[in-house]
Design a protein around this nucleic acid. Structure first.
Lengths: 116, 116
DNA sequence: TCTTCATATGAAGAAAGTTTCATGTGTGAT
DNA sequence: ATCACACATGAAACTTTCTTCATATGAAGA
């Protein structure tokens, strides 16, 4: 992440780097789909890969940043690993996003295509 | 955005594309710094460029997705444009993120570097 | 109209992130 | 100890996104 100088506002120092990591972790269709599926129930890598129709190694690679940011928890069960959503963060997060979409993007994420 | 198949969970249909656009708009240090500075007060492009120590055209380019997603509002004032934060969304959004950081990333965004 | 100021835009090169493929690691079962 | 299963990891190829530079647009003033 390239540093950009700034006057500190309400956000604590160091917060921008954290935000950058968080948002870039979420800015990926595979990881969003994984999160969405984990909402239903905890799953292991193989199950997720099957559900999403993706290679196991791809799922593994993509789960890593989600775990690193603690958006999902992981628990070992014998030789598999059970991944589950961190509802404490993810639920309110998606609530904010959904609320924003309802208020500002009535056409479904299309928003303003051009500035006038 | 490449589509990834998924079983629909709590998130409405079409929500993943919206989320992807939102999060990728936020996943950029320049745009995060711009948001942070706009928290203090509305600014025009030139002021933002000066504050952030970046080229005008870069700021312009980066403001565009923020406006498109409606994270910032823009208002014409003669020949300049005044950009301001959409506090209704941004405030609760950063509150969620900050709360998560406090609970799960005590060392300041470092989180888990490796899985064990 | 001509000039200047403020900002937007297009395109090309640079950088960052993603996917794939091959392989490594660890656990449980025989 | 050996095998198979579940998963992680590394590196290269590929794709997407960013930044820069040059230029265009549009409003205000002389």
């Amino acid at each position: 992440m390239k540093k950009v100088s700034c006057v500190m506002g309400m956000v604590k120092k160091g917060m921008n780097e954290t935000c950058y990591r968080f948002f870039s972790t979420l800015a990926n269709p595979t990881r969003l789909a994984a999160l969405e599926n984990l909402m239903n129930k905890p799953m292991n890598v193989t199950q997720l890969a099957e559900t999403l129709g993706q290679e196991q190694s791809m799922i593994s690679h993509n789960l890593r940043p989600l775990v690193r940011c603690r958006f999902v928890h992981v628990e070992r069960k014998g030789r598999e690993r059970l991944y589950s959503i961190n509802h404490e963060t993810i639920d309110p997060l998606f609530k904010v996003i959904e609320n924003h979409a309802v208020n500002y993007c009535p056409t479904g994420g299309k928003c303003l295509e051009r500035m006038k």
